[in-house]
């Protein structure tokens, strides 16, 4: 849909971009973690890109599929230009953290909390990085591929003779 947007972005951050593709018409750039805030600021403020909307922040766990293990995925949409761009940031398992973009997009507030809750991705500089879906007592991050499938963390015990499994 918007090869120009992708090319304009990669032209500005040559040293940061690891790879790009446009599979199924979805323009995607895989970038390094450092200078993420600069890149997102550029996406938002550059008049030719004008990505006013950060529509999704999520994560993927590629355990046993590829290295590095995690990828954080950002989806941007420009309302005025009607084009989209996807940014992926690979993260090592031993340090799954990257800068928060809440200061640039308010919508990141809950979506970053969700990625933290379910994948354990730490967003540095997030003003309120708490669990958002699971309860406070919950241990671990349930969408990680190494979370035990039958592991339950009930808040109340089952009735006598019953089991939570």
């Amino acid at each position: 849909m918007s090869k120009e947007a992708l090319e304009r972005f990669t032209g500005h951050f040559k040293a940061q971009v690891i790879a790009t593709h446009s599979d199924h018409g979805d323009d995607t750039a895989v970038v390094k973690r450092d200078r993420l805030v600069d890149m997102v600021t550029f996406l938002r403020d550059d008049p030719a890109l004008a990505f006013e909307l950060l529509s999704d922040v999520t994560a993927v766990d590629y355990l046993g599929v590829k290295e590095p293990r995690f990828e954080v995925v950002y989806h941007f949409y420009s309302v005025s230009k009607n084009h989209r761009l996807r940014i992926k940031v690979p993260l090592e398992e031993r340090e799954p953290s990257l800068p928060s973009v809440v200061s640039l997009y308010k919508s990141a507030l809950w979506m970053e909390r969700e990625a933290f809750d379910l994948y354990g991705i730490v967003f540095e500089g997030h003003p309120d990085l708490r669990r958002i879906l699971m309860y406070e007592e919950f241990e671990g991050h349930p969408l990680r591929k190494d979370y035990e499938m039958e592991h339950r963390q009930p808040r109340i015990p089952p009735r006598p003779g019953q089991s939570h499994l």
């Binding site: 009930p154 109340i156 089952p158 009735r159």
Partner: peptide
């Protein structure tokens, strides 16, 4: 919850 009869 795997069936509410586990709690009520």
């Amino acid at each position: 919850v795997q069936g509410i009869d586990t709690i009520i």
